[in-house]
Simulated assay, not measured.
Amino acid sequence: MKTTGFAIAHASMLLWALLIAASFSAAAQVSQAIDPILLTGLRLLFCALVFLPLLLLKGDTVMTTRGLLGHAVLGLLLALYFGSLFEALRYTSAVNTGTMFTLVPLMTLGFEAVLTPDSRLKQRIVPMLLAAAGAVLLIMKGTDPGELPSPYALTVYGIGCLAMALYAPLSQRLKANSLKGRGPVPMTFWNMLFGAQFLLVFCGFSGGWRSASLLTLKDFYWLMYLAVFATLATFWLLHRAIGVIAPSSVISYIYLSTLFITLFHWFWGRQMPLPLELAGAGLVGIGMFALLMSSRRAVLAMVQS
């Protein structure tokens, strides 16, 4: 394995972490008067349409009934996550949703242990617990000094984070069976197309479609940004790096994104760091460093063997 390959993979994930961090603030820029389910449905639909030309060029449009069912389940998980993000942002800050997202890897470990068991998962537990503890301290900061985050927002987004944590292990499990041989392009297209359909159909019954008249050019711009950079680009960067560096190193960049979110909050928001935030950021940093060292040792052992 070439050193340059690892450097490029890590640089890709650094960009991934920046895009993830920026996505939470971008999502908060969309008008809160518009139904969040409608916003999410449009976002996923835009993503699917961007990938449609690539899908047609590859000629990868044939799908079995079992394959469609698998994509439908994965699409539902995506719909739950993105829908919960927009809904939670009505009641809490982008900082809180962004830092709570860092708990997803820890949740993913639990699902991986059930769906795709691996003895090496144990090596990630302690570093992820440290980083997760730091994320919890950051979440406790609340929207304003001394104010805890909305319990409703944490509950709603917590459900969405569980759905996102289940997404990766379930995708891996399905790709070994009903979705065997599916590449990142068709996986992204079908999953997001199904997710968009679920949400837009729900809007038809709930009446959320009526808020579409409130959609401005500014809202449309932010939706396109979220679709292209916060969803499609991050998905591509993730799959670009995951075959080069150890999985634990890839997962650890989620923790790096929370440091970027906190820095955005301190510098652009002109907020003085609180002791609770400093402690949380420190724990996240220590946890991420431990994960990177663990991954490096695993790679060296693999090369030597």
Rank of each mutant, 00 (worst) to 15 (best):
H10R: 11
A11H: 06
L18A: 15
I20E: 02
A21C: 06
A22Q: 05
A22R: 03
A22I: 04
S25E: 11
Q29M: 14
S31D: 13
D35W: 00
D35C: 00
L38D: 01
T40K: 01
T40Y: 00
G41E: 04
L45E: 09
F51W: 05
L52M: 14
L52F: 13
P53S: 09
L54C: 10
L54W: 13
L55A: 11
T61D: 04
V62K: 15
M63S: 11
T64Q: 07
T65L: 12
G67T: 05
L68S: 11
L69R: 12
H71M: 12
A72Q: 07
A72G: 14
A72V: 03
A72P: 02
V73Y: 04
A79C: 10
A79D: 07
E87R: 09
A88R: 01
A88Q: 03
L89A: 04
T92A: 10
S93G: 10
T99N: 15
M100R: 06
L103Y: 08
M107F: 15
T108L: 05
L109A: 10
A113L: 06
A113D: 01
A113F: 01
V114S: 10
P117C: 06
R120L: 07
Q123W: 06
I125N: 07
V126P: 00
M128G: 00
M128P: 00
V136I: 15
L138M: 15
S150G: 08
T155I: 09
V156W: 03
I159N: 04
L162M: 14
M164N: 09
A165G: 09
L170K: 03
Q172S: 12
R173G: 00
L174D: 03
A176E: 12
K180T: 07
K180C: 06
G181P: 02
P184L: 04
P184G: 02
P186A: 10
N191S: 15
N191I: 00
M192E: 05
F194H: 04
A196W: 01
Q197F: 13
C203S: 14
G204N: 08
G204R: 09
F205K: 07
F205H: 09
W209Q: 12
L215N: 08
F220D: 10
F220E: 11
Y221E: 07
W222C: 06
M224I: 10
M224H: 06
A227P: 00
T231W: 03
T234Y: 00
F235Q: 12
F235R: 08
H239K: 07
R240A: 13
A241H: 04
A241M: 06
I254E: 12
S257A: 15
L259F: 01
L263V: 14
F264S: 08
F264N: 07
H265L: 02
W268D: 11
L274A: 15
L276N: 09
A279I: 08
G285R: 03
A290L: 15
S295L: 05
A301K: 14
M302E: 15
